[in-house]
Amino acid sequence: MAEPAIVLERLVKRYGKGPTAVEALKGVDMAVHPGEVVGLIGPSGSGKTTLLKCLGAVIEPTAGKITLGGEVTFDQGWKVRDLRALRRDRIGFIFQAPYLIPFLDATENVALLPMLAGRPDAVARARALEILGTLDVAHRAAARISALSGGEQQRVAIARALANKPPIVLADEPTAPLDSERALTVMRILNRLACDYGTAIIVVTHDEKIIPTFRRIFHIRDGRTVEERGDGRPLY
C-alpha cells in the first residue's frame, strides 16, 4: 500500500497558558492514504476545526507531528513563506460556503492558484477551464460569481481547491448548505477526483446525508479521535 498522504501522530493543541489553558486536541492519531475520502465527524467544540487548522498549516500544534506527503510540517526552521507555499501547492481547501473571490469570474477564481504558484497565465487559465469542465461548469467559466447558483459556486470552489492538483484536500462541511441530491453530487465529485488524481480528502461534516458514503470515519470527541469503519454506500 502507498505511503499515507496525511499522518498525524499524538497531535496536541493547547490554547492559552496556565490553569485557564484549553486543550482542544489531546493526542490525535490519524493516517489518510492517497485516493481516500475519509469523514471527520464530531459534536460542536470537539476539536474538528482546530484539527483542520493544524492540518491546513494555519495554526501550529503544541505537540505531536504532522506529516503531509512525507514532509513534516512545523518542523524546526519552517517559515511563514514555507507554510504559504505548502497551502498553495499541496493543500486544497473547500469551505462550508464557497467563499469565492466575488470580483473575479469563475475561471479567474480557479486560475488564481496556479498563477500564484508562478505558472504562466495561459497555462493557469487552461488548467482552470479543464477542471471546470471536469466539474461540468465550463459553460459558466466567464460568469461573475454573483451570477452563479449555489451549486455552481460550490463546484467552482471545488475546482479552485483542486487547481494546483494538491495531494491533500481539506473540506469543511462542504455539503452543509446543499439539499440531499446536491450534497451527494458533491460527494460523488470528491470521490471521483480522489480516484482520478490520487488526492487524499478529509471531509469534516455533520451532514447525516453523506456520512454513510464514507468507508472510513474518524470520530473526534474531547480532542481525541476514534476510527471506525463506514458503510461506504455507493454513490453511483
Partner: peptide
C-alpha cells in the same frame, strides 16, 4: 473574508 481566503490559498 476574501482576504483571509486569499491568504489561506497562498497569496503573498
Amino acid at each position: 473574508r476574501e482576504i483571509a481566503v486569499l491568504k489561506l490559498i497562498g497569496t503573498r
